[in-house]
Design a protein around this nucleic acid. Sequence first.
DNA 1: CTGAAAGCGCTTACAG
DNA 2: CTGAAAGCGCTTACAG
Lengths: 335, 335
Amino acid sequence: MAATLRQVAERAGVSVRTVSNVVNDFPQVAPETRARVQQALDELGYQPNAVARTLRNGRSGLIALVLPELDVPYFAELTRAVIEQAAEAGYTVVVDQTDGDPVRERELVMRGNRAAMFDGLIFNPLALGGADLRNRPSSTPVVLLGERVVEGGLDHIMIDNVGAAELATRHLLGLGRQRIAAIGDQFDETRQTGQLRTQGYHAALQAAGREVVPELVRPTEFFHRADGAAAMADLLALPQPPDAVFCYNDLLALGALRTILSRGLRVPDDIALVGFDDIEDGRYSTPSLTTVSPDKTQIAKNAVRLLLNRLDGDQSAPTRLSADYTLEIRESTTG
Amino acid sequence: MAATLRQVAERAGVSVRTVSNVVNDFPQVAPETRARVQQALDELGYQPNAVARTLRNGRSGLIALVLPELDVPYFAELTRAVIEQAAEAGYTVVVDQTDGDPVRERELVMRGNRAAMFDGLIFNPLALGGADLRNRPSSTPVVLLGERVVEGGLDHIMIDNVGAAELATRHLLGLGRQRIAAIGDQFDETRQTGQLRTQGYHAALQAAGREVVPELVRPTEFFHRADGAAAMADLLALPQPPDAVFCYNDLLALGALRTILSRGLRVPDDIALVGFDDIEDGRYSTPSLTTVSPDKTQIAKNAVRLLLNRLDGDQSAPTRLSADYTLEIRESTTG
DNA sequence: CTGAAAGCGCTTACAG
DNA sequence: CTGAAAGCGCTTACAG
C-alpha cells in the first residue's frame, strides 16, 4: 500500500521515468516493459500521490466554491449545478461555507493559490467588498457571484436585482393589489441584495403612480424562514395590513406564509405572496410560491466557463454577466 | 506576488532555513534577523505554498465530506454541523456530492490519500457496500455515515432506524389511527434505509396487534418531494385511503402534504403525517411536521472526533456509534 | 542562532 | 525506447 514510483521501479527493474510513462499511458513504452511495470504496479497497489503531482504540475484539478451558507436551498441548488458543470470539464469542486464571516471569507479567498490547493475559486462574498478583493495578494483566478461587489476587477456573475424586483412587484400590481409590502430590506453596506430589491420595488410602485408606504417595507437581518415569519407578524399587526407581499427570497416567503396561514388568513385571497430564487420548497408548499427564478444552470455554466478560461491563461478584461431570470407564477398569487 | 521561500531568503540575505523559522514563528531567531526577514516577506507578499507544505508534512489540514446529495436539506444541515466541528479542530472541510453514483463514490473514496489531498474522509455511501470498502487500497482514515454499510471494518455512525421507525409508527397508533400507511420502502440492496424503516413500521403494527396491509406500504425510488407527492396520490386512489402516513423522510412528507392539501383534505384531521430528519422546512410548513429528529450535531461531533483520532494514529478496533434521536411532535399529528 | 543539504513523490527536458 | 538527474517549494535533522 502507498507504494511510490521509486518502489515500483525497483521491483520492475526499470527507472522511475519508465514507470511514470506507464502510469500516464504514454505510448513510447515497449510492450514487454509495460507488462512488467504493470505487474509491479498491481502487486504494490500503486496509487499516484496527488499532492506531489500538484506540486510538480502546478495544477490540482480542484476548484473551490465558497458560499455563505450551504444549508440555504438556493446555494445548495446552485452548488449542484456548479459541481455538474465542473465535472464535465474534469474538475472536482470542493465547497466551503463562510457564514458571511469576514474572517473566514478572507482566510479562504485572500490567501489564494499558494495558501490553498485550488486552481481557482468561485466566490459569493457577503462581507468582502471590491476594495478588499482588488488588492488580493494572490493570483488565483476568482469568479464572483452575487451582488455584494460592484467593482472588484474580477469576473462577475450577477442578476439584475432591480429589474427582477420590479417585475415581481409589477406582477402584484397587475393583480390589483392595493397595499403591497416588501420583506427583506437591508441597510448594512455588506448586504446589497436587500437594497437593490427595494429599489426595484420602489421603481415599480412609482411607475404605477403609487406611493411608497415606509412601514410596509420591512428590514430583516437574514434571509431565513424565521426572519420572514417575524416580519410578516409585524405587518399583520399594522392598523392596515398589506394585501400582498414581495419577499426578497423564497425562505422569507415561506416563513411569511406560515405566519399568514397560522392566523387563519388565506393566500392569495387575503394576501398574495411572491418570493425569489425558485427553490424546490416553494414548488411544494401549499399554496405553491410565485417566485423570481434565476437561471441557476446558466449561472453555474458561466461561472465555470469564465474560471476555466482564466486557468487557460485568458488575460482579457474582467467580464460582468447578468444571468437570465423569469417570473414563475404559481398559486400564491393566482389561487 | 507568489514569492518563494528562496526568493525571500535571497532578498533578506539569509538562508531559507531562517526564513522558514520566521514564517513558522519559531522562537530561536535573533530579533534583527527576524525584522529583516519580515520586511522581505512583506515586500514580496510571501504566501507559503500549501501543496509543498502538504507534500513535506504529509498533512493537508483538509478533510473531505462525501455525501449523496448536497441539496437534500438533511445533508446540507449535517454539512453545516461537520464544518463547524472540524473548524474547531483546525481542519477545513471540503464537500463533495456523489448522487449515489457508484463510479463517483469509488473515485472519491477508494483511491484514497495518495490520489486525493485529504487527510481523512467522512463518507455517506449509497452504492458502495462493506465488501467494496473492506479492500480499499488506501489507508486514509474513513468514518462512515448512514445505514448502507453493515460491515465495512470502519468507524461508523448510524442511527437505530428500526427503533426510530417503530417510535414514529407507535405515535400514530397512539392517536388511534386505523389505517397507517408508509412511504419510502425500498428493495434495492444499495438502499437500506427504506428497508430498515419498514421493519420498524412492521414491528410497531405487530406489537399493537395490527395487520400489515401490503398496499399501504409504498416504495419510492428516491426520498424527494416528488416521490412523496406521487406515492400519496397512489394512496389516495385506494378504495380505502389511509388515515395516517409515516414518511421515511421529511421531503417525502412534504410532498405527501402537498398532495393531501391540494385534494382539499386536512392534516391531521383526515390524515396524520410523520416525517423523518427534522429539516427546517418541516418546522415552517403548514401544518408543521411531526418528525423523527436525529441529533445532527452529535453525529457531526462524533464523526469528526473519530476521524481525528485515527489521524492521530489511533489503531483500536473500529467503533460503531448510534446517534440519539427524538420524536418532535408538531401540528401534522396533533392539529 | 544560522547555513548547507536532503528529501517529500512526482514529471520531464536532456542524453543516449 | 529508457536512464540519470533536476526541480516543483517546503521542512528539518545535522553541523557549527
